[in-house]
Amino acid sequence: MWSTLCTLDNSGEPSHYKQAVLSEDWRNAMKEEFEALQKQGTWELLPPPINRNVIGSKWVYKIKKDQDGKVSRHKARLVA
Rank of each mutant, 00 (worst) to 15 (best):
D25K: 12
T4S: 11
W59S: 06
S72A: 10
V60A: 00
I50K: 09
S3C: 10
W2L: 15
K39N: 03
K58S: 04
D25A: 13
E13R: 09
E13Q: 13
A76F: 03
D68N: 06
M30C: 09
D9C: 04
P48Q: 10
E44G: 13
I50T: 15
Q67S: 15
T42V: 15
V60N: 09
R77Y: 02
L78Y: 15
Y17G: 05
P14Y: 05
V71T: 02
S57K: 05
R52G: 01
P14W: 03
V54P: 15
K75D: 09
G69S: 01
E13N: 07
F34K: 07
S3K: 05
Y61Q: 05
R73E: 12
W43M: 04
I50R: 07
M1N: 06
E44M: 08
Y17N: 14
S11G: 03
K31W: 12
W59K: 07
W59L: 07
Q67P: 02
E32Y: 05
S23V: 00
G69Q: 00
P49I: 06
K39V: 07
V54S: 14
A36N: 13
A29M: 02
W43L: 11
K58F: 11
Q38C: 06
K39C: 03
G69A: 05
A29V: 03
Y17L: 04
L8E: 00
S3G: 10
N28V: 01
S23F: 06
L78E: 11
E35H: 12
K58V: 10
I55R: 08
I63N: 09
V79I: 12
K70H: 02
E24Q: 12
R52N: 12
I55M: 14
L8W: 07
V71I: 15
V60E: 05
S72K: 14
S23K: 01
A80Q: 06
L37H: 09
P48R: 03
Q67L: 12
